[in-house]
């Protein structure tokens, strides 16, 4: 049952992420992206990573996407006021896209060669075990990443502050 659920949810994630790209209206794109993130949450639950699932739910679906939606609704982008792109930009886009495909195919080939990774502890995703890992062996990287986030926050506050003459 687990694998069939996985394939259904995976197909949904691919479908909705394609809809993100193909929908004309930016607000619809963001809404499809939210649904895509929801399918990711289901993936995490299937992997028994409850904490990651709920954090993905809160942070990505509940906070970041709200901000995306917020900005897009304010900008009110329509097809009419979309700037015309020159052919040069389009050609550059095609080249960049092809490069991305080549890279993706290359990385997929590499994963096919390796054996699937087996978790030593299937309950690692539960909040207790994850906390012990993060505040035990991975203490330093965890704290450093929090400093990184703090730096970004201070930077954002500084950028919005008006210069005092």
């Amino acid at each position: 049952m687990g694998t069939s659920v996985f394939y259904i949810v995976a197909a949904l994630s691919v479908f909705f992420s394609l809809m993100v790209i193909f929908s004309k209206n930016p607000v619809h794109s963001v809404l499809y992206l939210i649904v895509t993130f929801f399918t990711f949450t289901v993936h995490y639950i299937l992997l028994n990573a409850q904490f990651l699932a709920v954090v993905n739910f809160i942070v990505y679906m509940g906070a970041i996407m709200v901000l995306f939606l917020f900005v897009l609704m304010l900008l009110n982008l329509n097809k009419d006021n979309e700037p015309l792109k020159s052919p040069l930009v389009k050609i550059l886009g095609i080249i960049a896209g092809c490069c991305l495909i080549v890279t993706l195919i290359g990385s997929l080939k590499a994963t096919a060669l390796s054996n699937p990774l087996l978790l030593q502890n299937p309950n690692l995703g539960l909040i207790k075990n994850l906390g012990k890992e993060l505040f035990g062996p991975f203490m330093l990287p965890f704290e450093l990443s929090s400093i990184l986030l703090l730096t970004a926050m201070v930077g954002a506050v500084l950028l919005t502050k008006k210069e005092k003459v």
């Binding site: 809404l31 409850q50 809160i58 679906m61 509940g62 906070a63 709200v66 939606l69 909040i127």
Partner: peptide
Amino acid sequence: DINVGILYIFGVVSLGVYGVMI
């Protein structure tokens, strides 16, 4: 009784704004 019950509630609360926004 999920072991992240409080976070689940918090997640539901954070989704609540979508109905209004959409």
